[in-house]
Computed example of a mutant assay.
Amino acid sequence: MQYDAVAFDTGGTVLDWHGSLVDELARVPAWQGLAFDRHAFANAWRRSTMQGIVGQVQPAFNMDDVHLLALDEAVLAFGLPALDAPGRTHLWRAWHRLRAWPDFAPALASLRARVPVVSFTMLPTALVIDVSRRNGFTWDAIVSCEMIGVYKPHREAYATAARWLNLAPERILMVACHNFDLNAAHAAGLRTAFVARPDEWGPAGPPDPHPNMAYDHTVDGFAALCEQVLSTP
């Protein structure tokens, strides 16, 4: 099937948040030489953030705010020395410095030559702008749940994104490595593509590494996704 737009989950599907954060944690001056599991810290930070943002409706905060609260929680949970204000802010802002998975940039270019490509994400708009500039991405649009005021997996988030794109939901391909996102997109009438990101959570592996329903596309990487999507005349 030919699509009129391709929408990408961005936080874990496009961005290597775990590897990027572990590298940032290794460079925190106040924690140099301390023996703690930086992989577990990054995952705890991410997990707490997701618990605080998924499914929110008209919150008075965005995901950046939750990132900061979750950072403080992780520092306490791991018994680490408190960071001074500049150090805390610098580490918190690491989310705005995330690097992308290396196979995404060429896929983005290939797909955009055919159809509009959109970042459809729970990440704050400013964060998506920062990481996109840092990684050299050009989207046709950014649709953040922050703009909508309703966060995935609420049906309204997907319906609003489709309405803003002026497209019927079935003309949009939603791409993600998370079952909860794709299942909700499917229920809202979007087409779906599961892209495996086995390293998203580092050595521990992702909590849902395999598709839990039949999606329109199930692939191991973005090159395979492009092959399938672009093979349609």
Rank of each mutant, 00 (worst) to 15 (best):
P29L: 01
P81Y: 11
L15I: 02
G52C: 06
L69F: 11
W101N: 00
R27M: 10
L98P: 00
F61Q: 10
V28K: 06
V66Y: 08
V75L: 10
L83A: 01
G11F: 15
A105I: 08
N43G: 04
G52S: 13
H67Y: 14
Q58R: 14
V115H: 03
V75Y: 08
T13R: 00
T89S: 13
A26E: 11
I53M: 11
R38S: 10
G79N: 10
R47W: 00
Q32L: 14
M63T: 13
A42Y: 02
A60Y: 10
A100W: 02
G87H: 12
D16G: 07
V75A: 06
S48K: 14
D65P: 08
F8Y: 08
W45L: 03
D103V: 05
L91A: 07
R47F: 08
R38H: 05
A7M: 13
A107Y: 05
F41N: 04
H67S: 07
R93Y: 05
F61W: 14
A82C: 14
L71Y: 01
R112T: 09
F78N: 04
Q32N: 15
L98H: 06
E73F: 15
F36D: 10
L83I: 02
D23V: 12
V6S: 02
P102G: 05
A35K: 13
L76G: 06
D84H: 03
D9N: 08
H39M: 03
R97T: 14
W92I: 08
E73C: 14
E24T: 09
D37C: 04
P59N: 03
A82Y: 15
F41D: 09
F61D: 09
T89M: 13
A113H: 10
Q58N: 12
R114C: 11
W95S: 01
V54P: 03
T10D: 00
T13I: 09
V6K: 02
A70D: 05
R46S: 11
D23F: 00
A60I: 07
F41T: 08
L71D: 02
F78V: 08
H39W: 11
R38D: 07
L68A: 15
A5G: 02
T13Y: 07
